[in-house]
Amino acid sequence: MKDLYLMRHGETIFNQRKLVQGAVDSPLTKSGIQDAIKMGEYLKEQGLNFDHAYTSTQERASDTLELVTKLPYKRLKGLKEWNFGLFEAQADYLLPKFTFTDPAEASFFVPYGGESSMQVMDRMTKTISQIMAQPDNQQVLVVSHGAAILMFLAKWVPFTELSKITDLPNCCVLHFTYDTDTNKFTFVKMIDPQKI
């Protein structure tokens, strides 16, 4: 059994201003920087010694990873945030509230030049599975994005449990185990930066 620690990036200016941030990027805020440092210290205190680290190619994710660990890392496009098309950089309240039960929601952003939920789920699952399948990767840190992480979580967690997770705060870390025999992930817990 292997361990995956999947982390959301720190707070950004777009997060602070409640703007949609998928394919577009914005820098970390002071709070985002402090939370990332705090989470890195907490993970060290817990005795977590990562053997490999990966991040999205987006600046907010790689900056977060560099604040959490000094471990060399690889940037992978498959870990990028959901592309929201024409909704990018618009006010958050314009986004629909997904229930994960309506098939029409899956492709909502496609006519606007964005990705479907299944496209995001598939690329996140493929990328993270390839990471964890590597023999030397036993305890891995991956930094990605809120919506992309939620779609990965939706692949492995039943809807009844997923509906209880109302928020993935910036700098939260989701711990999964990975079974090399079945190539399946099991969600263990979420580490909330506001509770450490």
Rank of each mutant, 00 (worst) to 15 (best):
F98L: 07
E105H: 09
Q139N: 12
Q119P: 03
A53W: 10
P103Q: 06
L28S: 00
H175T: 07
K30Q: 14
T127K: 05
T127L: 08
L79A: 07
Y93Q: 10
V143N: 07
M151F: 04
D181Q: 14
V120T: 12
E11P: 15
V140D: 08
D179Y: 13
F50S: 09
P135Y: 04
Y178Q: 11
G32K: 03
N137F: 06
F14M: 11
H52P: 01
C171A: 12
Q119D: 08
F176K: 15
T12I: 02
K18H: 15
A154K: 08
P135S: 11
E88P: 14
L168I: 15
K189P: 00
D35C: 05
I128V: 14
I33E: 14
Y42W: 10
A147Y: 02
M7Y: 01
G114I: 00
D179H: 15
L4S: 04
Y178V: 11
K38C: 11
N15I: 07
S56Q: 13
R123Y: 10
T12D: 00
A104F: 01
T127V: 12
L76S: 10
E45L: 08
L6V: 01
D25W: 02
H9I: 02
Y93L: 09
K195E: 13
T180P: 04
K155M: 08
T12L: 00
T177W: 13
D35V: 01
D136W: 07
S107D: 15
G114T: 01
G32E: 05
R8T: 06
Y54S: 04
T99P: 15
P111V: 14
N170E: 10
T12A: 02
K30M: 07
G78I: 11
L168P: 15
P27C: 10
T186W: 03
K38R: 15
D102H: 02
Q194V: 08
R17V: 06
K97T: 10
L79W: 00
T160F: 14
F109G: 04
P27G: 07
V140Q: 07
K30D: 12
L150A: 08
A106E: 07
D102Q: 02
S26W: 02
N49K: 14
D192A: 08
L19C: 11
T29C: 13
V143F: 04
A91N: 14
G85V: 10
A91D: 15
G40E: 06
W156F: 12
G113H: 09
V20A: 07
D192K: 04
G22R: 03
Q119V: 06
A147F: 02
E45Q: 09
I13Y: 03
D181A: 15
S31M: 02
L65D: 09
F159W: 12
R60V: 09
D122Q: 11
Q16D: 12
A106L: 05
I33P: 10
K30E: 11
G78V: 03
G85Q: 13
E41C: 04
Q119G: 11
